[in-house]
Amino acid sequence: MAAAVIYRIRYIVCLLSMLSLAVHTALANEIPAQGPFTDSECVSCHSDRNPELIRQWRNGPHDPASGVGCSSCHGSLHADANVKARKNQGCTNCHEGPASHSYSKSKHGVLNRIEAHEQDWRKPLKSGNYRAPGSAYCHLHDGDHDDTMSADRGPEVRQWICVGCHSPRYVREQFANGRRQLDIADLKLTEGKQLIASAANSQTKELSKLRQSLIYHRRNVLYGVGHQSPDYQWWHGQPALDGDLIRIRDAIE
């Protein structure tokens, strides 16, 4: 009898302590206030909570020197902070021109746009949660605050992201094709630069404009390959480089 009472008391104590632990954990993870916060408040509070995230942000393209702070993507309030950052609109506010145009003309971009209202943007940017990848899905994958697609991480990381949705063989073939496209584009760039260097006067306004044009169109090929955007691989890329070579020769002849 006494043993049973003691057992019950111990049982209740145990339950209570578990409950208090659960409440404590919940409180620790509860978003403390809605804000608004300044960028330095975001950084200092989140540095304590997740130093790795802050380290990634400091090492990435949106580091303090770029002038992009937490609130540029998340807004200054906690409400919907993640939802806001995951949508393409947040990125395209700053990234206009070929970088975002090439993406928006790709199949991924079109799907992402026409199905935006059906997508549950509360879900983390991980495989299985999204049908077609948006800008942040690839570049800030799974909470990454550096650039997941950065060239210096090597092609394996990028292929791994694609394989979340496509078959490995398909992805390998896309990457091999992309590599060949860029090799060809580089041959064109080299030819153009050498032609300009061989000109009697390589400093003319016309030739420096054409040199810029070569670099611009080479980058379009890269955007086309990276964003799986046929119009950029092709019209804005390869044939545009061909046109540059013709015009360079015409200018120096």
């Binding site: 496209q181 691989q233 092709w234 390869q238 044939p239 061909d242 013709i246 020769r249 015409d250």
Partner: peptide, 15 residues
């Protein structure tokens, strides 16, 4: 097309 080689009207003059 596949590799991005010579497009139409490559082998022509600028005009």
């Amino acid at each position: 097309f596949y590799e991005g080689q010579a497009s139409a009207f490559y082998n022509v003059s600028a005009i």
